[in-house]
Design a protein around this nucleic acid. Structure first.
Length: 425
RNA sequence: GUGAGCGUAGCUCAAUUGGCAGAGCACUGGACUGUGGCUCCGGUGGUUGAGGGUUCAAUCCCCUUCGCUCACCCCA
């Protein structure tokens, strides 16, 4: 084959797209009920935006971005996530001047150059939501509630919400020092990866899955003993409101997240039905990012859902049967009949009836037997087939066949459009 | 970036110690000159991912390469 889709990207074909539409529709419905509006952000941004927002030393920025130089010599990057762009747009358009609270959602493709595997692609789709302008714990609980409600509506049963608070710019550095101190003494017994993490992202050592490390880390300090009073009160508040909402959660003081901008609340939703990449959504609070980007001191929280992972969990039930299969098929015998068929097809389509014909004009294509045309009608699963034959045409008639009842009748050709509309429309 | 597994028809998969590349589905024609679904019969469709080696003979064994998949890492 001459051309193939490149590694890590894929086509979403009919049969799948219905599921995507179903999910997107429910997301829009629910988000708008919760007061969110859609924002459409560019797929490309200046590289510096992501480098600054996501963090210079994160894997995403260090080795996973699709970056290139444009004609003006500027470094441009295909977005690896959505939050940085939304924050940029929020500041650029001064959205904080219009309302004290701004709720935005977005959906679309993201790009990261990673080795593909189950649930991980180089072009992948996210649905994300962000709230700006409120630091009350109830807003954290609110956005998590919305997310859980969406998953429930989509019929997910095996999901788990994991919750943590990473502290703020005051108490996190203190914790970090305590952790580094603890790790430094134990480097020889930690795995190779964790020795690397020690240098680059020590918080990640906390959730290393290797046996030796997780054994050692049992005694490590975690966020639970390290938060400042305000941060502890904040996470307690989030929990309080989650209880009111009846949302089940698991506190995981070792839950670290890979993006530098998170402060205080972080959360992740996992599903047992997925492979190694078992997170279908993740998010958290980022109270300093707006300011870091040159905006006012405004706190914010958001999440992103991995579409491919979500799609793989959605049951292909009856509600996903494609809506585009035709209801009427027109079989024609001969050139004149084909022209009549073409005209009737046009008319009933204008009346909103999904329909197909056999396109059997004998001047250009080999004669198609009525049998083969009927077979095609059966394959399409239509309710009615219109048979236009030479004999009937001479008398100004066509045959309307009810496929389910296997009965048919002759109808005047002038009346056929209305007859079909009456039966189907 | 590291490791493992797999590449045969459009799709899902067979092929005995190495011995003429097959089946189901799909598509198409017929049995039934102008009537679908069920049944039966026929047909189209292949550089066995590619290149090299061993052999009388390679889908099968060896080497190289490309692709896919899964896992590590990391993340949605």
């Amino acid at each position: 084959m001459k051309y193939k889709a490149i590694k890590g990207v894929k086509d979403i074909l009919p049969g799948e797209t219905e599921k995507w539409y179903f999910i997107e529709k429910h997301a829009r419905d629910i988000f708008e009920t919760f007061g969110f509006s859609e924002i459409r952000i560019p797929i490309i941004e200046k590289t510096a935006l992501f480098a600054r927002g996501i963090g210079e030393t994160t894997d995403i920025v260090e080795k996973e971005m699709y970056s290139f130089e444009d004609k003006g010599g500027e470094s441009i990057t295909l977005r690896p996530e959505g939050t940085a762009s939304v924050v940029r747009a929020y500041i650029e358009h001064g959205l904080y001047n219009n309302h004290s609270l701004t709720k935005l959602y977005y959906m679309g493709p993201m790009f990261r150059h990673e080795r593909p595997q189950a649930g991980r692609y180089r072009q992948f789709y996210q649905i994300g939501a962000e709230i700006f302008g409120e630091e009350s714990p109830s807003i954290d609980a609110d956005i998590i509630t919305m997310l859980m409600y969406l998953f429930k509506r989509l019929g997910l049963n095996n999901i788990e919400l994991q919750l943590n608070s990473l502290g703020c710019e005051r108490c996190r550095p203190v914790f970090r020092e305590r952790l580094l101190d603890f790790l430094k003494k134990r480097l020889p017994v930690l795995c190779e990866d964790c020795n690397r993490r020690f240098e680059r992202n020590p918080l990640r050592v906390m959730d290393c899955k290797s046996k030796g490390c997780s054994e050692v880390m049992k005694d490590s300090p975690d966020m639970d003993g390290s938060r400042c009073e305000e941060c502890q009160r904040h996470i307690d508040g989030v929990i309080e409101y989650l209880l009111i909402a009846g949302i089940r959660y698991t506190l995981n003081p070792r839950l670290a997240r890979g993006l530098d901008y998170y402060t205080r609340t972080t959360f992740e939703i996992t599903d047992k039905g997925l492979g190694a990449q078992n997170a279908i959504a993740g998010g958290g609070r980022y109270d300093s990012l707006v300011e870091d980007f040159g905006g006012p001191r405004i706190s914010a929280i958001g999440f992103a859902i991995g579409m491919e992972r979500l799609v793989s969990l959605i049951d292909m039930g009856e509600k996903f049967i494609p809506g585009s299969s035709p209801e009427v098929y027109i079989a024609a015998l001969g050139e004149e009949a084909n022209q009549k068929a073409f005209d009737i097809l046009r008319q009933i389509r204008l009346r909103g009836i999904r329909s197909e014909m056999s396109y059997s004009d004998q001047r250009f294509v080999p004669k198609k037997s009525l049998k083969s045309q009927m077979k095609k009608a059966g394959r399409y699963g239509v309710s009615y087939t219109l048979i236009i034959g030479d004999n009937e045409l001479r008398n100004g008639k066509v045959i309307l066949r009810d496929m389910k009842k296997a009965e048919q009748e002759e109808i005047d050709i002038e009346d056929i459009v209305e007859a079909l509309v009456k039966r189907i429309g």
